[in-house]
């Protein structure tokens, strides 16, 4: 029995060194050498992360800042910044949850208050709570709000959305998406 234990312990230590650290460090080295932008969080020139950060301005009861396009609602408080990274994750409310129903109703009401007829993506939370994208339809739905707040004509905003739309990868992988941060950066240039 002692032989089994000694063997197990030795092999465990070797495999930790090899599969944990040699693999992990070599991988980090390759990643930093060839894809340093992606490997460090795809952080753009203005200091925001293209993905992995949520970009929305919801309070619990109203849409803040109607001059920007909004991403999907965050299941947690949207402005967690107390020095610790907030955990990611979904709201986990079931399909027949009264709380989900109340939330969606509140969000529909908030969107109606700024003149937007919301799509389903704009009133539901995502799987990560950090969904960086919306569909082109979600962006188009927000145009009346953004047009009123910024004075930019709806036609120009529609052109902007279609310019920022990325089709599915290879034509079929995933959905057509608009990255909310990139859309707003393009919007900032228009103003």
């Amino acid at each position: 029995m002692l032989t089994y234990v000694r063997r197990s312990l030795l092999l465990a230590l070797v495999l930790i060194a090899l599969l944990g650290f040699a693999y992990g460090f070599a991988g980090t080295g390759v990643a930093q050498a060839f894809f340093s932008y992606q490997a460090n969080g795809s952080i753009g020139r203005n200091g925001s992360a293209i993905i992995g950060q949520n970009w929305n301005g919801y309070s619990t009861t109203k849409i803040l800042d109607p001059q920007w396009f909004h991403g999907r609602p965050d299941p947690d408080n949207p402005l967690v910044a107390n020095g610790k990274p907030g955990g990611s994750g979904p709201a986990n409310l079931g399909p027949r949850s009264r709380v989900l129903l109340a939330d969606v109703k509140a969000l529909v009401k908030a969107w109606h208050a700024v003149g937007v007829q919301p799509t389903e993506d704009l009133v539901t939370t995502s799987g990560s709570g950090l969904d960086p994208d919306i569909t082109p339809q979600d962006a188009l739905a927000q145009i009346p709000m953004v047009a009123r707040a910024t004075g930019i004509s709806p036609a120009r905003l529609r052109a902007l959305v279609s310019k920022e739309t990325q089709g599915p990868q290879l034509g079929f992988l995933g959905s057509s998406i608009v990255n909310v941060l990139q859309l707003n950066e393009a919007l900032a240039k228009l103003r």
Binding site: A91, E120, S126, I177
Partner: peptide, 9 residues
């Protein structure tokens, strides 16, 4: 889309 990501659908 509750709990799903837009990029996957």
């Amino acid at each position: 889309m509750e709990g799903k990501e837009v990029r996957f659908g």
